[in-house]
């Protein structure tokens, strides 16, 4: 009986522990990407760097909790966002899978007075949230233009689409197609779907190159795709004959550029996105107004500058 009473008392008092928080307690931000992926690890690295810097310069510790959904599924991401809201952090830093699908959950954050910052995606219309990121269309366009130049503005090209349901992948593919359409002698002969998996991209790219022996070049729409494409080019012994312009800056991608398999990569700056997302979230937590959009830009990585 005594044990049961003590247990019941402990359970009743447990939520009150949150009242102990004070102004000198560490600032806690929860970073929720689209899914577990090396690209988001780089975002997290940038976020941690910003947290360290803020902690050292202000004297108030800043903590980043990284919570990645195991699969890129909107409902799973919403569940994680809701659970994070339940812990009442000082801010949420989100990479939205679908701003419309995430909208209702974001409204719950507003109701619970948890400030939000998004990166690598755009917030739902009408929501006062800072977005940090690069222009997906610009990134796809840069990759396609560079490939067009490499192949002398003529020949057969292929596009590797990442996850068909991911809006940023779809946007890059759309802009790559639009760019190629501006060159009358370039023909998009195939599109593969890699679902953001290097292995799938490698299989798809190998099959497409078998079916199109005259293929002159590749572009991709996600970070895993160009790595798989590079592996397929190397395995087929067509390094240098089939040109590749990749996306982003995964270590495997950089190695492919070093090895001369891929020419270059149009890379968003994940570390910078994480860094500036934390800065914006920190400003929000202190009650400051923040910009609507922070453009972190796009790098073109080549053998010369990596």
């Amino acid at each position: 009986m005594k044990t049961a009473f003590l247990l019941a008392t402990a359970l009743a008092l447990a939520p009150m522990a949150t009242w102990a928080a004070d102004d000198h307690a560490p600032l806690r931000f929860v970073l929720i990407p689209k899914t577990v992926h090396p690209w988001f690890d780089k975002v997290n690295t940038g976020a941690q760097a910003a947290a360290d810097l803020l902690g050292k310069t202000t004297g108030r510790k800043v903590e980043i909790e990284y919570r990645a959904p195991e699969t890129a599924d909107v409902s799973s991401q919403n569940d994680i966002i809701e659970r994070a809201i339940a812990t009442h952090p000082d801010g949420l830093i989100l990479d939205l899978l679908d701003e419309k699908g995430n909208h209702a959950t974001m409204l719950e954050a507003v109701d619970e007075k948890v400030p939000m910052t998004v990166f690598d995606s755009l917030p739902p219309e009408g929501m006062d949230v800072t977005a940090v990121g690069a222009d997906f269309c610009e990134q796809g366009t840069i990759a396609a233009q560079r490939l067009a130049g490499l192949i002398g503005e003529k020949g057969e090209v292929a596009i590797m689409i990442g996850v068909p349901t991911a809006p940023n992948h779809a946007r890059r593919a759309e802009c790559e197609r639009a760019t190629f359409a501006r060159y009358p002698q370039i023909r998009v002969v195939a599109t593969g779907i890699d679902n953001d998996s290097i292995e799938t991209a490698q299989k798809q790219a190998s099959a497409i190159m078998q079916a199109h022996p005259d293929l002159a070049g590749w572009v991709a729409c996600d970070a895993a795709g160009p790595v798989g494409i590079g592996q397929a080019i190397r395995e087929s012994g067509r390094t240098g004959k089939v040109k590749e312009v990749g996306l982003d800056n995964l270590n495997d991608m950089i190695q492919l550029i070093r090895d001369g398999v891929a020419d270059s990569s149009a890379s968003s700056r994940p570390e910078m996105q994480g860094y500036w997302a934390v800065i914006a979230a920190w400003q929000r937590a202190l009650g400051q107004k923040t910009p609507k959009y922070i453009d972190t830009g796009i790098d073109v990585l080549t053998k010369k500058n990596i």
Binding site: D73, S75, N78, A104, P164
Partner: peptide, 16 residues
């Protein structure tokens, strides 16, 4: 019910 919750019909519904 998930469509009603999200306000959109996502192709990934049911994946998990």
């Amino acid at each position: 019910l998930m469509v009603a919750r999200l306000g959109t019909a996502q192709p990934s519904i049911g994946d998990t």
